[in-house]
């Protein structure tokens, strides 16, 4: 599953750097030269980059939780192997992104503690439930698909360590997306029951996918640090448009109906009617669509989503359970088994 970096534009920050150095730094970025460790950077750049990489890392490890729940119930051996590998990938992405963040000045333990105490956040889409196997298919198809779109742009960013990590991660995201596409194709070529289950999961995940990219950016976002410094590459609305252009026709061809839905507090659909805005504008090649419910988005991001408490509780549980292991190996009290 995983990461958009920041679904919500970070707040404006004050830049307090030597103007001459800052001008040279910004010129480098404008010239397409990547920043590597050891290069001078404004403190605010470091702060923004850390915030972004840490949020992304948090999203990777929280994102593994809903899918991890389905490993034991995957419908075949192949799907079980693939889902296990995928969950392992996501946790690995977390490891790599925590490393990028550590280099920017925050310890891993501090990041894990801030995550479980709610000081930092993770991607909002993981606060929703996955009650059926078709939800797992939708997550891999739509959410990993959206994540690749976003991360491909991030791989075009300016911070070298994040860029090389993104390139490596994207290679694995391609597997997540393709296996998800295969799962959706399988379900939609299946029985009536499978198709109905898939439609219901699609109803749950389509609006979450649209909200994945975050609300519209400020009109002047190109002049603000995240985009000016190429931490963020493309506007949220532009990514969302590309996503709909890609996925709306695919969903329709698969026999899925794109609905506008209302949901209850548990994240389950209470009413659905076809989105009448869905149409291809032949002159632009763009599909029109109904925006997701942004009030719901803000409600969930503020902690009141169907699964916020559950996800954090499980993370906190793991952090507590792992404490003795970290202590034991940290003190060298427990050795690893000898090599065979």
């Amino acid at each position: 599953m995983s990461g958009a970096a920041n679904p919500v534009s970070p707040p404006d920050i004050t830049i307090t750097a030597d103007p001459e150095k800052l001008a040279a730094f910004e010129q480098r970025i404008a010239d397409g030269i990547l920043i590597e460790p050891g290069d001078w950077m404004p403190d605010s750049y470091r702060t923004l980059m850390l915030r972004m990489a840490e949020h992304h890392a948090n999203s990777e490890i929280i994102g593994a939780l809903p899918e991890g729940e389905w490993i034991t119930r995957a419908p075949s051996m192949l799907r079980k192997l693939a889902l296990t590998a995928k969950v392992q990938d996501e946790v690995g992405h977390g490891q790599m992104l925590y490393r990028v963040s550590q280099e920017l000045g925050k310890s891993r333990d501090d990041m894990l503690r801030d995550l479980v105490t709610g000081v930092t956040k993770y991607h909002n889409c993981f606060n929703y439930p996955c009650p059926t196997w078709a939800d797992i298919a939708m997550v891999q198809w739509l959410i990993d698909g959206a994540a690749i779109m976003n991360q491909k742009t991030l791989a075009d960013g300016a911070y070298g360590p994040y860029v090389r990590t993104m390139n490596r991660i994207n290679m694995e995201e391609a597997f997540h997306f393709k296996s998800g596409e295969d799962m959706v194709l399988t379900l939609m070529s299946g029985t009536k029951g499978q198709k109905a289950m898939t439609q219901e999961a699609f109803d749950r995940w389509w609006p979450i996918s649209l909200a994945f990219f975050g609300p519209a950016d400020k009109p002047n976002c190109e002049e603000l640090p995240p985009m000016k410094w190429r931490l963020k590459i493309e506007r949220n609305d532009s990514l969302r448009r590309r996503f709909v252009n890609r996925f709306a026709p695919a969903a329709i061809d698969l026999g899925l109906i794109i609905n506008v839905v209302t949901k209850n507090e548990q994240g389950f659909v209470t009413s659905a009617k076809p989105d009448e805005a869905i149409a291809l504008d032949k002159s632009t090649g763009d599909w029109s669509f109904t925006q997701p419910d942004w009030d719901e988005f803000w409600r969930v991001i503020r902690g009141n989503g169907p699964c916020n408490a559950h996800r954090l509780a499980l993370r906190r549980f793991s952090y507590d359970q792992g404490a003795w292991v970290r202590r034991a190996i940290g003190d060298g009290a427990v050795a690893t088994p000898p090599a065979a």
């Binding site: 310890s107 105490t117 509780a313 549980f317 507590d320």
Partner: peptide, 15 residues
């Protein structure tokens, strides 16, 4: 799974 109550375990240095 219920959120464990009370303080977090003591911090550990990164390996």
């Amino acid at each position: 799974t219920r959120s464990p109550e009370g303080d977090l375990p003591a911090p550990t240095p990164d390996a």
